[in-house]
Design a protein around this nucleic acid. Structure first.
Lengths: 163, 163
DNA sequence: CTAGATATGTCAGCATGACTGACATAAATA
DNA sequence: TATTTATGTCAGTCATGCTGACATATCTAG
């Protein structure tokens, strides 16, 4: 591959771990890791008659109770028309509820129902072992690095998804 | 904020970094980081009349010149019918070539053409700065941890994508 | 050499989940 | 009151995944 950067003048300008090959291995790993994490629990979803789009919405509503539609849109980065279908499915299925915000009644607050919370818990139960194993095997320092790099990649957009 | 999990009973049974909240933050970050990395360069793709599916194929063929169809399928984990459409688009567009393998002529070796390599380079040029910045800001130890965790998540499937 | 296994390609149809554009409504705000 | 904001909805399209069935060429085992 293009080893252009090996012959950098200053070691500070381009250390080994910033060569194209290392960066691309990072991309490979990100792709594989993401695929693995989000492949878990697909069986449960199909049983519930839902897809991955529903799951993502469910997940982020669970993580941010009372989230507004606009808030969810900014997390998922899809159009409101796309989200609307997903949300309507979830509401019709009794997984989430949509209520007017008391302070600004234009806004809707999204929350899980008991049924939605149960599905979310079941999905998490399926997904969790993989994460626990990977985190534990890697150790706390590695996990800290994992988070640090991802926060950099997400560009401070990755933080506000957590309550 | 939900500080529910702070009061864990035994530190050994569930170290702090393995609490549900920490694991879920990992999921949040993985989602955001992945989205950010793979959103870069979409403009170029559209200009070329291609989508993200084409990009993934192009990327992994670039990473593994001479890759077989089956090999690419096992990386992307989609059906051969889905892949066929993408590959045919790329071949018709002159981005990749498909040649019989000399040793086993049932197999096809996939490679980028000059045009494909140029597109791949342009995409990488768009994508790279984000990765460089995030890796450099996080530092080499963090990057090592990032890789370690992702390798655990990918379950040793994330390694063979690199040549 | 023949029979089967393997790697690939293709047709036909379907499902999911994105998109764009246009328009409607209710509530807040200037 | 006029405008902006947050949301919902209709209608159509596109991208990308899927299943099932079948064809072809080639390799491999008996």
């Amino acid at each position: 591959m293009t080893d252009i950067n090996i012959a950098e003048p200053s070691p500070h300008a381009s250390p080994l771990y910033l060569r194209d090959e290392e960066l691309k291995q990072g991309v490979d790993l990100l792709f594989s890791g993401f695929s693995a994490v989000f492949a878990e629990g697909d069986g449960l979803l199909r049983a519930a008659g839902l897809g991955r789009a529903h799951r993502r919405a469910l997940y982020f509503i669970a993580r941010n109770p009372g989230l507004s539609v606009a808030g969810l849109l900014s997390i998922l980065r899809i159009t409101k028309q796309s989200l609307a279908r997903v949300l309507n499915d979830l509401i019709e299925g009794g997984y989430i509820e949509r209520k007017q915000a008391p302070n600004d009644r234009r806004m809707r607050q999204l929350r899980l129902t008991a049924k939605g919370a149960a599905l979310d818990a079941a999905l998490w139960k399926a997904q969790r072992p993989l994460l626990v194993r990977a985190f534990r095997d890697a150790g706390p320092e590695a996990v800290a690095g994992f988070r640090r790099v991802l926060m950099g990649l997400a560009g401070r957009r990755g933080e506000d998804h957590a309550p």
